[in-house]
Lab assay of single mutants.
Amino acid sequence: ENVVSAPMPGKVLRVLVRVGDRVRVGQGLLVLEAMKMENEIPSPRDGVVKRILVKEGEIDDTGQPLIELG
């Protein structure tokens, strides 16, 4: 899985990584606010952040691509 998608609709509060960062499975990639709760979205695998497809403050839909890993 190279693309991390939104598991729920919500607002992107914080992006915790930058392009080029090495990430490990379970590491937080970004924080979504949904139903007044903050949810940290973890990396599904080890890899390198290739692209960040959303910006802080954006509203996303379920299934929307958020981050691409390489």
Rank of each mutant, 00 (worst) to 15 (best):
I59R: 08
G28I: 15
N2L: 14
E58N: 10
A6E: 02
L69N: 01
I67V: 10
G10N: 03
V54C: 14
E38Y: 09
N2F: 15
V15M: 07
S43P: 02
V12G: 00
I52A: 01
L16C: 11
R45A: 10
K11R: 13
Q27Y: 04
L53N: 04
Q64S: 11
R24Q: 10
V12A: 01
G47R: 02
V23H: 01
K11E: 02
L13G: 00
V4M: 04
Q27R: 03
L30N: 00
K50E: 08
R51A: 12
M37R: 12
R24K: 13
S43E: 01
S43N: 02
V49Q: 01
K36Q: 14
V15I: 15
I52W: 03
G28V: 15
D61K: 14
T62G: 09
E58H: 11
P7H: 08
G57S: 05
R22P: 09
E58A: 10
L13T: 08
E68Y: 11
L13E: 01
G57I: 05
A6H: 03
V3T: 11
Q64N: 08
L16N: 03
E1M: 13
E40A: 08
R51G: 06
I41Y: 03
K36N: 15
L53C: 10
E38K: 09
V15F: 11
R18M: 10
L13I: 12
G10V: 07
I41C: 06
I41R: 01
E38N: 08
L66M: 11
L29E: 00
L32H: 05
P42Y: 12
E38F: 09
V23C: 06
V4W: 03
P44H: 08
L66C: 04
E33P: 00
G47Q: 02
Q27T: 07
M37G: 11
G28C: 14
K11H: 05
G70E: 15
K11W: 07
V15E: 00
V48M: 09
G26L: 05
G70W: 15
A34P: 02
E58V: 11
K55C: 12
K50A: 10
K36V: 06
I67Y: 02
E40K: 08
Q64H: 13
L66G: 02
P42L: 14
M8R: 08
P42I: 13
K55A: 12
K55R: 12
T62Y: 13
V23A: 03
G28S: 12
E38L: 12
S43Q: 01
I59C: 12
V48S: 04
G63D: 08
K50M: 13
L32E: 00
D60Q: 15
P65Y: 06
Q27P: 01
R22G: 06
R24N: 09
S5W: 13
N2I: 14
Q64K: 11
G10S: 06
L16I: 05
V19E: 10
E68A: 08
G10E: 00
E33Y: 15
K36F: 13
R45L: 12
G28E: 03
L32D: 00
R14T: 05
P65G: 09
L69H: 01
G47A: 10
L29V: 07
E58K: 09
L32Q: 04
A34L: 11
V4H: 02
I59Y: 14
P7R: 07
R22T: 12
P44I: 04
K36T: 11
